[in-house]
Amino acid sequence: MLRYFTLEYWLDDGWYVGKLKEVPGVFSQGQTLEELEDNLREAFQLMMAEEESLPFENVYSKEFAVAV
């Protein structure tokens, strides 16, 4: 299954640095844009694997409003 995210990236001292806009905490870098994309894919997959192994039995969610 493919999921699509927004990659926000910038150059910092010759490195491509980026994050997935919709997934807080998934950042990476690479010497090329392609390497950055590969590293972000790996970071996302590692985060998802870790989240699946969390020891919580009952996890709840709900929508809530924030004024902006």
Rank of each mutant, 00 (worst) to 15 (best):
D38R: 15
F44T: 02
W15L: 12
V66H: 03
V23S: 05
T6D: 05
L33Y: 03
Y16D: 05
R3H: 15
Y9M: 07
E22I: 07
K62W: 13
L11E: 08
L36F: 02
N58Y: 11
Y16W: 07
Y9F: 08
E57C: 10
Q31C: 07
K62V: 10
W10N: 14
L54P: 01
A65R: 14
Y9Q: 00
E37A: 02
G30E: 03
M1N: 09
Y16N: 06
A49Y: 08
N58L: 14
K19V: 03
L11F: 08
G14E: 02
T32K: 01
E63D: 12
E37D: 03
L40R: 02
E42I: 03
P55D: 10
L2T: 15
V23N: 05
E52G: 11
V23Q: 00
M47D: 09
W15G: 03
F44V: 01
G25T: 00
T6S: 08
L54S: 11
F64Q: 08
L11T: 07
E22W: 04
A49R: 09
V23C: 05
L7Q: 01
E57K: 12
M48F: 08
E50T: 14
F5G: 05
P24I: 06
Q31E: 13
A43H: 01
G18M: 02
E42R: 01
M1L: 13
V23D: 05
Y16E: 06
S61Q: 10
R3V: 15
E34Y: 05
E22P: 10
V66N: 01
F5S: 02
Y16M: 04
T32V: 03
F56W: 08
L33S: 07
D12C: 09
E34W: 04
D13I: 08
V59A: 08
D38H: 12
T6F: 03
F64H: 09
F27Q: 07
Y9R: 06
F5W: 07
Q45M: 09
V59S: 07
K62M: 15
R3C: 14
Q45L: 10
E51V: 15
L46G: 06
D13Y: 08
F44K: 06
Q31V: 12
D38E: 15
F27S: 07
S28G: 06
T6I: 07
M48L: 11
K19P: 09
S61P: 01
L20P: 01
R3F: 12
Q31W: 12
A65P: 06
M47K: 09
D13V: 08
E35F: 03
M48T: 11
V17G: 02
F44I: 02
G14C: 00
S53E: 15
W10A: 13
Y60W: 13
E52K: 13
E50H: 13
D12F: 11
N58T: 15
K21F: 09
F27V: 06
G25K: 01
L20F: 03
M1V: 13
A65T: 14
L40M: 04
V17S: 01
F27P: 10
S53K: 14
A65F: 10
W15H: 09
E63Q: 12
L36H: 01
L40H: 00
E35M: 04
E52R: 11
G30C: 00
N58R: 15
S61G: 06
S53M: 13
V66D: 00
Y9W: 12
S53D: 11
L2D: 15
D13H: 08
D12M: 11
